[in-house]
């Protein structure tokens, strides 16, 4: 996989994530339907967003580690305004912040759940959305208690 700086898929008008060089292991993991984040070799904590050092203890030594994919719905909002034409068929949709059981929070969408049924604190599990031939988004849906 290569870094990617394309912000829109021309055919569909869908917004794409920009993939920065040090994020490649995360996006390669997502392609394999796994959540791969950094884990510090010094304090053993994980973090997000992806970055060059451990923000907890400032060690530069880390490994890429598979997260369980389980977590809690920490926060959410519901978009009613479609920002572009592509979003017109998507609204209303939820953007959520998921707290992984390993600690970091990810900003994603919430699938397989009506907007009115979303509750802060509900258990969630990862689900993966292949959006182009190379890029897969990590998403979440309701999980088991």
């Amino acid at each position: 996989m290569e870094p990617s700086y394309k912000v829109v898929e021309e055919k569909t008008g869908r917004y794409l994530p920009v993939i920065y060089p040090e994020e490649l292991p995360f996006w390669e993991g997502a392609r394999k339907h796994e959540i791969i984040l950094q884990r510090c070799n010094s304090c053993a904590k994980s973090w997000y967003p992806i970055g060059p050092a451990c923000p907890h203890c400032f060690s530069m030594s880390f490994k890429w580690d598979r997260m369980s994919g389980r977590g809690t719905l920490h926060n959410y909002v519901v978009f009613h305004k479609p920002w572009t034409k592509w979003f017109e068929s998507k609204v209303p949709y939820a953007v959520v912040q998921i707290q992984l059981e390993e600690g970091p929070r990810l900003t994603t969408n919430f699938l397989d759940c009506a907007v009115k049924d979303i509750k802060i604190g509900m258990p969630v599990e990862a689900v993966f959305e292949d959006i182009t031939s190379d890029i897969t988004l990590v998403q979440f849906r309701p999980g088991k208690k």
């Binding site: 912000v7 917004y15 794409l16 994530p17 920009v18 920065y20 994020e23 967003p49 992806i50 970055g51 978009f79 920002w83 979003f87 998507k90 949709y93 953007v95 900003t107 994603t108 969408n109 959006i131 988004l137």
Partner: peptide, 18 residues
């Protein structure tokens, strides 16, 4: 599209806009 979310936490691929 800045690295690690936009200046107000935006993430356009997830529709977290503006």
């Amino acid at each position: 599209w800045r690295q690690g979310l936009g200046p107000h936490g935006e993430s356009p691929a997830y529709g977290a806009m503006g």
